[in-house]
Design a protein around this nucleic acid. Structure first.
Length: 573
DNA sequence: GCCGTTTTCGGCCCGACTGTTTTCAGTCG
């Protein structure tokens, strides 16, 4: 049973928590957290890296010691240092640190002085009033602990980006109406266009900070004001989402936007460069000594530090800073680069709109082509097309194309990859199509090796064009099936198969790190909406966001091409 | 624990807010 990256990351994070409780060197703690983040975000499994003899010390923030520990976990499943510390400290103490407002120092004090080892202990102590008596604690802290305990579910909840957008939009409108408000923007992971966000960071430019604060905390969806100062406030919304507002003057706009966009790892790395160059960067500006030398725009900061402008989507400290130093940042794809959509359904299966309506909707978005990819027969739930109905649809598309001027509907299908890796319809009908999107819809529970072989076998079929939603995950709803995506991408590089980036906000499949790996391997990506209504075509922008996070340029994406060029890419040797 | 245009030791990002204090530690982002 190979150890997954996430398991290693979990062990390191737990170790970091416990070390922090023990009062270890905070930079040592950070090293473990960084390692957890690095390993957790890798597109390939470290088990495989080790097998292939790739040195783990090549990974940023992984030195000899951590490389050895990672290798040990891969080999044995155990991290001896973690187990050693768990003998000294109750492992459940790390749960206490999940409670907002409880950090290592307070948890340590609660453990030492009140023998609190679990959430249950914590609740009992708070109810009995013993916490308020501790030095450094008080009645307010005790009440806050009780209140947050009641809300604690044990899991961090992240909201899908598209859902966050719907929550944020009316709030921005509300804030914009504050007297003296000059500008309101969202920073944080929302601006970096992460597939999910944990909270919302809003930046407001105004000379009247107090008015902005008042307007913010009085928003109708606010259920709790967690903190409120002169320039900063935090609230919790009815939806459960936390929102931070930060007010800055116009002159600090760029510095503040940069700082609050993050990511944290990116900010730390850039500030380190700033220090080396004799600067200090904070949310008010960039300074040489006590003299402020910039910060009105983000560009001023990048310029000072000798970096080219790094788009927010890349700010994850995954190589973008080095690329910016060397002037080799990618020119990221934009929505305007997209010329068509290659995965769309109609009423013929589980879509809601007609062939013609879909075509017109695509055309009205400025596209030059779209592929109609209804389901194949095996997806019975969606009344998948059999040979006869597919041929009917092909003829209907031919008739429609005769009427359309300057727009082409491509004949295609979303073809089920059967459990043995064969495709759901015979070659004699597939050969009539312009392309196929081949996807897994059943048998999610195959063992990883078998699932991978299933897809690899399908990919070697002569009429296989694009692999649809490659992992089958639904964000916040279900994990994808177990599959070796790195091997699939390597095979795609060999065979010329295209990999889909499914733009449905609940899918965004494949993820950003796999987009980057695909690019590095030379694999072409199709960003497709998997539309089931005409409105769904607008999901393209979420796909483009994800592609940008994955470093993709227009040239990496097939549906940025004009039709003749696309056809060439689809024609396989 | 990592890392090197401060280079193998001695640094490691930086400020706001809260609740507890009587000048600040702890937490958070």
């Amino acid at each position: 049973m190979p150890i997954h990256n996430m398991e290693i990351a979990d062990q390191f994070n737990r170790l970091a928590d416990l070390l922090e409780l023990e009062g270890a060197n905070p930079f040592r703690v950070r090293a473990y957290r960084n390692a957890a983040r690095t390993v957790g975000g890798l597109p390939q499994s470290v088990t495989d890296m080790l097998k292939r003899g790739k040195p783990l010390t090549d990974l940023p923030g992984i030195g000899e010691d951590l490389a050895g520990k990672i290798a040990a976990v891969c080999k044995t499943g155990h991290l001896p240092l973690l187990e050693e510390i768990e003998k000294r400290l109750p492992p459940a103490l790390t749960e206490l640190m999940q409670i907002e407002g409880l950090g290592p120092k307070r948890v340590k004090a609660l453990h030492r002085q009140l023998k609190i080892e679990s959430l249950k202990d914590l609740e009992r102590a708070a109810r009995s009033g013993r916490i308020a008596e501790l030095k450094g604690f008080g009645p307010k802290t005790q009440a806050a602990i009780l209140e947050r305990l009641g809300r604690h579910t044990g899991q961090v909840h992240r909201v899908r980006l598209a859902d966050a957008e719907q929550i944020v939009k009316p709030l921005l409108e509300h804030l914009s109406a504050a007297p003296g408000m000059e500008e309101v923007v969202v920073a944080g992971s929302f601006r970096r266009r992460m597939e999910t966000v944990g909270d919302i960071d809003i930046l407001a430019i105004t000379a009247r900070a107090a008015a902005a604060m008042d307007r913010f905390v009085s928003y109708e969806d606010v259920v709790e004001v967690s903190s409120q100062g002169e320039t900063r406030a935090s609230v919790r919304l009815r939806s459960g989402l936390n929102v931070d507002l930060r007010v800055v003057p116009r002159s600090s706009y760029g510095a503040a936007l940069y700082y609050f966009t993050g990511s944290k790892a990116h900010s730390i790395a850039v500030r380190r460069i700033a220090i080396k160059k004799g600067y200090k960067v904070n949310e008010y500006g960039i300074y040489r000594g006590s003299r402020r030398v910039g910060g009105r725009t983000e560009a001023e900061i990048f310029d000072r530090l000798g970096l080219s402008f790094i788009p927010p989507e890349l700010r994850e400290n995954r190589g973008e800073i080095e690329a910016a130093q060397e002037g080799r940042l990618p020119v990221l794809i934009t929505l305007d680069d997209i010329r068509g959509d290659l995965h769309c359904h109609t009423k013929a299966t589980d879509g809601h709109d007609t062939l013609q309506a879909m075509a017109e909707a695509a055309r009205s978005r400025g596209y030059e082509y779209m592929a109609i990819t209804d389901h194949s027969r095996h997806v019975a739930m969606a009344h998948g097309l059999d040979r006869k109905r597919l041929l009917q649809q092909i003829r209907a598309i031919d008739r429609l194309n005769e009427k359309l001027d300057g727009f082409v509907v491509l004949k295609a299908i979303e073809l089920d990859i059967l459990a043995d890796g064969s495709l759901d319809l015979p070659d004699d009908v597939l050969k009539e199509l312009d392309l196929t999107v081949c996807s897994v819809h059943y048998k999610f529970d195959l063992p990883r090796r078998q699932q991978t072989e299933r897809i690899l076998r399908a990919m070697n079929h002569r009429y296989f064009s694009i692999l649809g939603h490659a992992t089958g995950r639904l964000i916040n709803e279900r994990e994808g099936y177990e599959v070796d995506l790195e091997r699939i991408l390597e095979e795609a590089a060999k065979t010329g198969c295209i990999i889909e980036l499914n733009a449905q906000p609940t899918r965004l499949d494949i993820s950003d790190v796999y987009c980057k790996l695909a690019k590095e391997l030379g694999v072409k990506i199709a960003i497709s909406t998997d539309s089931h209504t005409t409105d769904n075509l607008d999901f393209m922008r979420f796909g483009v966001d994800q592609a940008r996070r994955g470093w993709l340029e227009a040239g990496d994406v097939v549906n940025t091409r004009r039709l003749p060029e696309l056809r060439k890419l689809l024609r396989r040797a």
